[in-house]
Write a protein that binds this DNA or RNA. Structure first.
Lengths: 247, 247
DNA sequence: CTCACGATCCGTACAGTGTTCGATGGTCCG
DNA sequence: CGGACCATCGAACACTGTACGGATCGTGAG
């Protein structure tokens, strides 16, 4: 590569500090956009840098790690979840159900988060996570749960919602990567699936029944149904005054 | 680097095909061992190759992708889970509970799987997964669940178990990476945690109560308790004859 | 027996990755 | 005006997954 003629004219000449140079806030936003637009694989420090009109490694002045960056982004995602309102007049059941739906919707809106939640292990100390957990505990208490029962209930609900929507999000992310429509993909999957369940009558029947149904509506309904079961179980055990069996 | 004197003598001379050269089975086993021993980051195609006394890229003859390799390993992990026995005399509840415990134990035995499950989205077509799902469906049917109810119940249980134990596994994996003891780590985390929940009375009380308790036993008990709630909810809704609310 | 073929293996190479380090140069305080 | 700070960034390091092409093998056909 021929070295450019060195003179005042060829030299980049005052790299102009024109942006409010950089800030953690900005960086997290940019990373967030990048993730939403192109998925987890597309987030590299270099690309993030250039997207900020900054050098590749300038990010490290404001963020120690890529991991740390991701923790920050994860908490920002949690910021989109609507926590249950204190003293929801519709009762704890409806409040928690709304929360669960909001949590799932948020995960599905940012499917890349699935691949990351299991590494952070639900970023325990993020301020948004903490605020929401407190609010959910309050909602359960309002419904007559003891604090220990509320804790147990919170963990059950979160586990269910995250477990379920992570799987859904992984599916959506795979779809997005391959750029195909959901029905199209499902069609291509059918032969393999039918082959795989050939010897398993129950699964075969279920798969056959699901054929040709609207997958989105089906998932929504199944989530709601399952949530109903979970909340029902919690209500039966705790609502009113009871204590959890242990401790 | 000085080129070695080229002659018959310096040339490596018949690289001797001595191993039963390679096989998908072998490769998956080696990857499995590597993952268990050193975690997900330690699995690179090159290291896997050398561990097999094979060249770095020889693996690609038997496996198309790293992703494909991981799918295979995941299904092998599922092979360790004990499916519920058909016609368990203890009843569907106990059978499913045993299955849930086995699933969790398996995940915790191989914590790296947490980071991978959410990308594969529960490797839907792996033979082991399918076999187990069929068995669980059977167990539910034996308990009087309709097939649709059994499907719903299966998904609820799996979501709960995976959601919960993924988070636990992520925690364990982080511990393993840092090489520290669990109590040690917890001690280092305390100040930050207490700071974070300062304004949140419920969480603060819960954290304080947990202080100094055995974390392993606590997690086991909480899992069992939560599982009880979930299964209770399912039983209340379906066991006996009822249908799920939405067909 | 010869020879060609297909499968297998592996060295090399490419385009990337996260992260470290040292130099650069702008900004502000004394 | 001097000097201390500090954000920025280019270059470099040790890796990564994988495509490609040549080498080597077992095997079966002629």
């Amino acid at each position: 590569m021929p070295e450019p003629y060195p003179s005042v004219w060829t030299r980049p000449q005052r790299p102009r500090r024109e942006q409010p140079p950089l800030s953690r806030e900005q960086i997290v936003s940019a990373a967030f956009d990048l993730l939403d637009a192109e998925g987890l694989d597309a987030l590299s420090m270099r690309r993030l840098g250039t997207r900020l009109n900054a050098g590749a490694t300038s990010v490290y002045t404001h963020v120690a790690n890529k991991d740390e960056l991701i923790e920050l982004v994860v908490d920002r995602v949690y910021g989109e979840v609507e926590p249950p309102a204190a003293d929801d007049p519709a009762g704890w059941y409806a409040a928690v159900a709304r929360y669960a739906h909001s949590l799932r919707a948020t995960v599905l809106r940012h499917p890349w988060i699935a691949s990351v939640l299991s590494e952070t292990g639900v970023a325990y100390l993020g301020p948004n996570v903490i605020r929401q957990n407190e609010a959910v505990l309050a909602a359960f208490e309002q419904g007559g749960f003891s604090l220990e029962a509320a804790d147990l209930a919170l963990n059950v609900v979160v586990a269910y919602v995250i477990g379920r929507s992570s799987a859904e999000a992984a599916w959506l992310a795979k779809l997005a990567r391959s750029g195909q429509d959901e029905r199209e993909w499902a069609a291509r999957l059918w032969p393999a699936a039918e082959q795989a369940v050939r010897e398993h009558p129950r699964l075969r029947e279920l798969y056959a029944a699901r054929r040709g149904q609207d997958p989105v509506a089906g998932r929504d309904a199944e989530f709601a149904d399952g949530l109903d079961c979970v909340l029902g179980g919690l209500a039966a055990r705790f609502s009113g005054a009871a204590q959890p069996r242990r401790s």
